[in-house]
Computed example of a mutant assay.
Amino acid sequence: MKKALSATLAVILTASVAAGCGSADKPASGGAAPAPAAGDAAKTDKSKGKLTVYVGFQEDHAVEAMKQFTKDTGIQADMVRMSGGEILAKIRAEKDNPQADIWYGGPADTFVAAMNEGLLAPYKSPAAEKVDAKYKDPNGHWTGIYVGFLGFASNKKFLKDHNLQAPQTWEDLLNPAYKGQIVMANPASSGTAYTALYTVLKVKGSEDKGFDYLKKLHPQVQQYTTSGSAPGRMVGMGEAAVGVLFAHDVIKYQEEGFDTMELTIPKDGTGYETGAVAVIKNTKNQELAQKFVDWSLGASAQEVGQRTGSYQNLTNPDAKEPKKAIKLSDINPIQYDPTEAGKERKRLLDKWNSEVKK
């Protein structure tokens, strides 16, 4: 059942305040009374201590996850919500004196970039044995907790007023009718947008052809946001015609009341994120951080999204996926290699800044 838009805004506002609005100065506590349950790797005897977690997915899901973690394990957790690129920059700046213990959520290619800079501590969780090899680092530097596919959110009124069909391919975004009407995040700050950049290069068949396309797309873009999910809200409110973001975020907005949006998945190929979890190197809470990873890979953690309207596909085969999650049989995913994407991240971002955004 769709929630009233006003109620949704209230929930998101509450979650944002609790999460410190993405500020590193005001972490939000999980705040739930310890009550461990049975079933997952991390659900053992109650543990004392507190973790700080940098979170890369939506606030309401993150707040609920912190509560569930404390309930399941007895460990307190504070969270700070940021975009993937912001988390990477923060961990990089704090490498000599880490201010957080865990990185939780956001595309794995950003984790790969951190791994290559020596910012993550390897940990092979026993719970990771259930996770498909393509969704984890073989040495345990990061492990996938969910999968999300890119899509387009289109404003229905704009489509009707301009007698347009919602875009079906990446090429459709170059329609002159969309000039100055497309919103997407900045790939330097957003893991979502970097996933889109890397996807375009693969869909177009080469780096040169991909960048030629991105140069043509640039005049179509009204704004590059900091957050990867923000374009969906802008489209839903009629501030833009089309947004490029993860399909699960579009579905979430639709369920929250933004029935002004239509979701399409590019037929010529869509990329995806493997949302990951990792232990930050030199954490002072190594044992507790490992327990968080164990917990995050269990069904209890991965099913938290069911309560907050998150619609990602899950990596634990024992976890119950949301009914509205995207079905692989309905889309055309590209061969997305998070390891390659992570290794090429800095070079491709530098090239995008110098040749596209200028």
Rank of each mutant, 00 (worst) to 15 (best):
N116S: 13
A127R: 08
L120A: 08
P122E: 11
T110A: 05
K130E: 14
E117M: 06
L119A: 00
L120V: 00
Y104C: 14
D109L: 13
E117Y: 00
A113L: 04
L119W: 02
A108E: 10
N116D: 13
Y123C: 04
A128Y: 08
V112F: 00
P107I: 09
A113K: 11
D109S: 14
N116L: 11
W103P: 03
V112Y: 02
G105K: 06
L119S: 08
A108Y: 05
G106D: 02
P122C: 14
A114Q: 07
V112E: 15
L119D: 03
V131Q: 11
Y123T: 09
A128C: 04
P122Y: 08
A108G: 03
S125R: 13
E129D: 15
N116P: 01
G118S: 12
T110G: 12
A113P: 02
F111A: 13
A113R: 01
A121E: 14
V131P: 12
A108S: 12
N116Y: 04
A121L: 13
V112T: 09
A114G: 06
D109Q: 14
K124T: 14
D109V: 06
G105E: 15
G105C: 14
E129I: 06
E117I: 08
I102S: 07
P126V: 08
A127M: 13
P107D: 11
P107L: 10
K124F: 02
P126S: 04
V131D: 11
G118V: 10
G105H: 01
W103Y: 08
L119Q: 03
A113V: 03
N116Q: 14
L119C: 04
G106Y: 01
A127T: 11
L119P: 00
V131A: 12
D109F: 12
A113H: 07
V131M: 13
K130D: 14
I102M: 00
S125E: 12
S125W: 14
A114E: 03
K130M: 05
M115H: 07
A128P: 02
E129W: 04
E129K: 15
A128T: 08
L120T: 02
A114N: 06
Y104L: 14
A127Y: 07
D109A: 12
L120H: 00
P107K: 04
V131R: 12
A113N: 09
P126Y: 12
N116C: 00
A127C: 10
P126D: 13
Y104H: 15
L120I: 10
L120G: 02
T110E: 13
K130C: 05
P122V: 07
S125C: 15
